[in-house]
C-alpha cells in the first residue's frame, strides 16, 4: 500500500525513483498542482524532493502543515524558501568530487547517527554531496548534520505536531539519477523511517515499460 506521498514536479528523477519496482508500492506520486488535503489523506508521510517548484509549494503550504498537525512526517530535501519553511536556505557550489580530490574533507563533518535514518549508515552513505546549507533553522529544531564550517545540512523539529525533517542532501533525486550506487542504503533507511515499511533489500531496478506510452501518470 502506498503510504508516502512524493510531491512531484514532473521531473524525471522523481519519477524514476517512485516508479522503480522496489519503491512503487510504497511511494505515491502527487503532482504538485494536485497537492491538496484529499490527495494526502491516509498517507503516513510526505516527501518534498530537490528540484521542486517552490512557488507552488508556498501556495499550498497549508496542506503541508495540516498534514504535520495530524502527527505525520514530512521530509524536505535540497532547496527550500522561507515562504513556506521557517528557515533560511542558501545556495553553495556543489562539490561532487570531494571523495576523489580531498577524501578526508567531506562536505558533512558531523552527523547524529542515533537518528533512525542514519542508524547503521557509514559516513559515505550518510553524505554524498550537498545542495546549499541552512544558515538559520527554527529555535525549536535540532541539528542532525552540519558541515565543517558549522552550517546546518540536516535538521528536524516536532513543533508542528508530527516530524518535519529538512536536509540539503538530495537522496530522492540522486537515487532516481542512479549515478551514485550506494544510495539504496540511505533511501531504504529513510523509507522505513517514514512509513514503517522496509523496501526489498538490494539495488533499485528500472522497468522500461513505464517510460513513454506506459508512463504512470
Amino acid at each position: 500500500m502506498q503510504s508516502i506521498g512524493l510531491v512531484f514536479n514532473g521531473v524525471w528523477s522523481h519519477y524514476a525513483m517512485a516508479t522503480a519496482p522496489k519503491y512503487r508500492d510504497i511511494y505515491k506520486l502527487i503532482y504538485v498542482y494536485d497537492l491538496d488535503n484529499e490527495a494526502v489523506a491516509g498517507l503516513d508521510a510526505l516527501v518534498i524532493p530537490f528540484q521542486s517548484n517552490q512557488q507552488e509549494l508556498a501556495a499550498r503550504k497549508e496542506v503541508i502543515y495540516t498534514f504535520l498537525k495530524q502527527g505525520k512526517k514530512v521530509f524536505v530535501e535540497g532547496d527550500s524558501t522561507a515562504d513556506w519553511l521557517d528557515a533560511q536556505w542558501e545556495d553553495r557550489p556543489v562539490n561532487n568530487y570531494w571523495w576523489v580530490e580531498n577524501p578526508n574533507n567531506p562536505p558533512v563533518s558531523e552527523t547524529n547517527y542515533d537518528h533512525p535514518i542514519y542508524q547503521g549508515l557509514t559516513p559515505r552513505q550518510a553524505c554524498w554531496h550537498t545542495h546549499g546549507v541552512y544558515t538559520r533553522i527554527p529555535a525549536h529544531a535540532e541539528m542532525i548534520q552540519a558541515n565543517p564550517q558549522g552550517d546546518i545540512i540536516s535538521w528536524q523539529t516536532h513543533h508542528y505536531g508530527g516530524t518535519l525533517f529538512a536536509t540539503t542532501l538530495d537522496p530522492i533525486v540522486e537515487h532516481g539519477v542512479q549515478q551514485i550506487t550506494h544510495l539504496d542504503n540511505y533511501v531504504d533507511r529513510l523509507t522505513e523511517w517514514l512509513s514503517g515499511v522496509k523496501p526489498t533489500p538490494g539495488r533499485m531496478t528500472i522497468e522500461s515499460g513505464v517510460y513513454g506510452e506506459g508512463a504512470l501518470i
Binding site: W12, S13, Y15, Q178, I206, S208, V210, Y211, G212, A215
Partner: peptide
C-alpha cells in the same frame, strides 16, 4: 536536453536505465 519519460517528443522516446555501470 532532459529525460522525457512521457511520450510528447514526436518519434523518439527517452528511457531511464541503470543496467550499465557508469
Amino acid at each position: 536536453s532532459d529525460g522525457w519519460f512521457t511520450d510528447w517528443v514526436p518519434g523518439n522516446q527517452w528511457v531511464m536505465d541503470n543496467s550499465k555501470r557508469t
